[in-house]
Design a protein around this nucleic acid. Structure first.
Lengths: 105, 105
DNA sequence: GTTTATCATAAGCCATGGTTTATGATTATG
DNA sequence: CATAATCATAAACCATGGCTTATGATAAAC
């Protein structure tokens, strides 16, 4: 699996996570996000850039505005990694149980 | 949903993520992790503390050693959040498509 | 054409946090 | 009992990165 963890890094910051969650609810412009959140417009733009590079959102120019949408790609990659970890965790449990059994036998 | 995002913050750091991935493969002691990874033992201990507080791992004392195991709890919380975001993303797409249709009608 | 709105980038500031060294506590070993 | 091994915590250092202000570029509005 090729996962560069960009999604995790992107979503670790509270403000950036909030930006993402808002965009995930529905398409929003930069100005709209800047009005809602208690940070400057450049801060929003920077966060969106990080989210864009992590393929968590994508931009769609509309006149002078830039409308941001969710990009399923980034979420999908994260989910794949998470599922693999989940599988490993279950395997680890199985091994522990087996070892415990062997010790008893 | 009550999710404090501790898991995301914990897994955003590369070394800490590596620690977690190693523990996810199977139980390991602090000393063992310190031997494998290119950081000091206190660094490992600190990372494990963060992972512990995020309920991603749990410790089990065994003599002078401390064996760390995966804790499914943290991964489960992350997955729940991820699934909700995934749902929102799909809903957003549906809404966009519907709006596009309405504009055409 | 002038003004207003939207947005991205750059520069600089500063807090957060990841790291190391130092240390003490606990447990195994001899 | 003495030594060695394992681990957690504290203090201090410093790079990373999130934020603001400043600025320019593009597009809408008047």
């Amino acid at each position: 699996m090729v996962y560069d963890y960009a999604g995790m890094v992107a979503l670790a910051d509270p403000t950036r996570r909030k930006v993402f969650e808002l965009v995930a609810e529905g398409p929003r412009s930069v100005a709209n996000l800047a009005r809602i959140l208690p940070v400057s417009q450049p801060a929003i733009s920077h966060h969106l850039k990080v989210l864009r590079e992590a393929r968590l959102v994508r931009a769609e120019p509309r006149g002078a505005s830039n409308i941001y949408h969710v990009d399923p790609h980034g979420l999908g990659e994260m989910r794949a990694w998470l599922d693999q970890m989940w599988g490993n965790a279950l395997d680890a449990f199985r091994n522990e149980i087996n070892k415990a059994k062997e010790r008893k036998e």
